[in-house]
């Protein structure tokens, strides 16, 4: 299981968000560049359709592959009341022939996307990962070098944290609490809901950049 929230931020304020996340997490940022291929099952694999995502991490010198299966979201009155989406997830590392394998057993490419940006991973009540990426689509099949952003002026922010059946309440609390700290710059919600942008994000960003920029020069 994992807890996940998403939000958007204007590209012009991404630097301020990085300053804020650096301060809150206390860890260095990681570069993110992921080629994500979404495959769907064919008729020969059974009546129930299934979807699997293959993630190729291009930020490393040697690309590494991950299989990711996103299951159903938790349902019920309790799930409706919390502001974080809790869903089942199965993830596994794989070798580079994973794509050929899935093509071989009958999966077909549905769509692909390229994400580039940065991420922070830290522990704060739970193991939290905050990812800020520009999402691009390929003009030609698999041509990652020719990808163009879907929304050049807006970037995607995702916060995820792994959870288990016995501790997801604590993880939900940790993620919700952390989202409060980002409220000056962006709002976060379940993937299916939209949030818009924060009207006062410009002022908050200016404040962060001035204090962040001045921090290097100031000594007490």
């Amino acid at each position: 299981m994992e807890c996940v929230v998403q939000g958007i931020i204007e590209t012009q304020h991404v630097d301020a968000l990085e300053v804020l996340l650096q301060g809150l997490s206390g860890v260095p940022k990681e570069r993110v560049r992921v080629h994500e291929l979404c495959l769907k099952s064919g008729p020969n694999l059974g009546v129930v359709p299934s979807e699997v995502r293959l993630l190729c991490d291009l930020a490393q010198s040697t690309p590494s592959w991950t299989i990711r299966h996103v299951g159903g979201a938790m349902r019920g009155a309790g799930a409706e009341q919390i502001s974080v989406l809790v869903r089942s997830i199965v993830e596994s590392k794989a070798s580079n022939n994973v794509l050929r394998y899935f093509y071989g057993i009958g999966y077909k490419l549905d769509h692909e996307v390229l994400k580039g940006g940065f991420a922070f991973r830290f522990h704060r009540g739970a193991q939290i990962t905050v990812t800020v990426t520009s999402v691009s689509k390929m003009t030609k099949l698999h041509a990652t070098n020719e990808a163009v952003p879907i929304t050049p002026a807006i970037q995607l922010v995702e916060i995820t944290a792994p959870a288990a059946a016995d501790n997801y309440n604590d993880v939900v609390s940790a993620v919700t609490s952390f989202c409060e700290y980002l409220a000056p710059l962006l709002h976060l919600s379940k993937p299916g809901n939209s949030t818009g942008i924060v009207p006062t994000a410009g002022a908050a960003a200016a404040s962060l950049m001035s204090s962040g920029g001045g921090g290097g020069g100031k000594t007490l």
């Binding site: 998403q6 958007i8 996307v113 993937p191 939209s194 818009g196 942008i197």
Partner: peptide
């Protein structure tokens, strides 16, 4: 902005 957000979320979550 709302339109752009919808576009981005639909692409990322549903392709």
């Amino acid at each position: 902005i709302q339109e752009q957000e919808g576009l981005l979320r639909a692409a990322v979550n549903y392709g």
